[in-house]
């Protein structure tokens, strides 16, 4: 463009947006906000509405009048309460196990690994997050199969009895490895472990080395330094990781159909009520239990500073 000529229309438009940043902002924001609010939050509102409907006993049809009876049914029936307790216990145990297993590796990555090693470990931990979780669950069915790899390995080292001990244990047992609670917890922990390692590593990396030195200079033993210095500073990472381990366990219905006992957890109950049983209102109400648990959890997590560690 020649010097001194009038600005072109395109340039006038960009100048307008530069001088009126609010308009630019609005244009950029509108599509995604509309999508998230209308499609996503809107359909959650639709689900909420449905959870206040009920199902007619005899016809099996959905009665679209407002009622609390579905929620009452959810709270009053012992079977339903059991499902909620069982699911929360499962999600909590998986979360704790993930945290315990993730800590050593995350600590090593954050503190001792060389730059090359760290990049390698980081990629190695990250990659499974983007590969099919179904495929990895499938492989555990084959590892844990009767006469499969696990049994074979244990027999080779003469620890075959361990399996029988696990199967007979009251809280972990079952009729075979695949249909034991133990395997369900094991596979969940395996699958969600990277979700815990990554934010934990980020948080641990931010702990200044000088803090640890100061703590030991002031006479604290390693155990005390860990409890009073490292752990509080790692907390945002732990909480961020637990959001995923907890939430993913809470709503899963695929894994519990592949592993574990026949006792339902929440995700399965939602799946069955919505699909086979055709009781959409009850499925919606169960989903809302999970949703409320997670939203409360998220608010607490945000207060703990976990969102910066995500």
């Amino acid at each position: 463009m020649a010097v001194g000529s009038l600005p072109s229309r395109g340039r006038r438009i960009s100048a307008f947006f530069f001088r009126h940043p609010r308009w630019k902002l609005l244009l950029l924001l509108a599509p995604a906000v509309l999508w998230l609010v209308v499609v996503y939050l809107g359909s959650i509102a639709g689900l909420l509405r449905q959870s206040f409907w009920s199902i007619e006993e005899f016809t099996g049809l959905i009665d679209r009048t407002f009622t609390l009876s579905t929620y009452l049914q959810l709270v009053q029936e012992p079977a339903n309460r059991d499902i909620i307790v069982r699911t929360a216990t499962l999600a909590a145990s998986v979360t704790v196990l993930c945290a315990v297993l993730a800590f050593p590796l995350a600590y090593y990555m954050a503190r001792f690994a060389t730059a090359r090693m760290k990049t390698f470990l980081y990629l190695a931990v990250l990659m499974p997050l983007w590969s099919s979780y179904l495929v990895r669950a499938l492989s555990w069915r084959q590892i844990l199969a009767e006469d499969g790899i696990l049994r074979w390995t244990l027999r080779k080292v003469h620890l075959d009895g361990v399996v029988d001990v696990i199967l007979a244990a009251p809280l972990l047992g079952g009729s075979s490895l695949i249909s034991s609670r133990f395997s369900l917890v094991l596979v969940f922990t395996y699958l969600w472990l990277p979700f815990m390692i990554l934010p934990l590593e980020t948080a641990l990396e931010r702990v200044p080395r000088s803090f640890l030195e100061a703590s030991s200079d002031l006479g604290a033993r390693p155990g005390l330094t860990f409890r009073r210095v490292v752990l509080p500073l790692a907390k945002p990472g732990l909480v961020a990781g637990s959001i995923f381990t907890f939430s993913l366990t809470l709503g899963d219905f695929i894994l519990p159909s592949m592993f574990g006992t026949s006792a339902y957890i929440l995700g399965q109950q939602v799946y069955v009520q919505q699909g086979v049983a055709g009781n959409d209102p009850l499925a919606a109400a169960f989903t809302f239990v999970a949703l409320v648990i997670m939203v409360v959890y998220l608010f607490l997590a945000r207060r703990a500073g976990a969102f910066e560690a995500l």
């Binding site: 709503g251 959409d280 949703l291 997670m294 995500l310």
Partner: peptide, 19 residues
């Protein structure tokens, strides 16, 4: 709201859209 679809269980998104 942006993180909700991955922070909440997938089942929430699925059943909400369906219903």
């Amino acid at each position: 709201v942006v993180v909700l679809p991955i922070a909440l269980p997938g089942i929430v998104t699925g059943i909400a859209l369906r219903s």
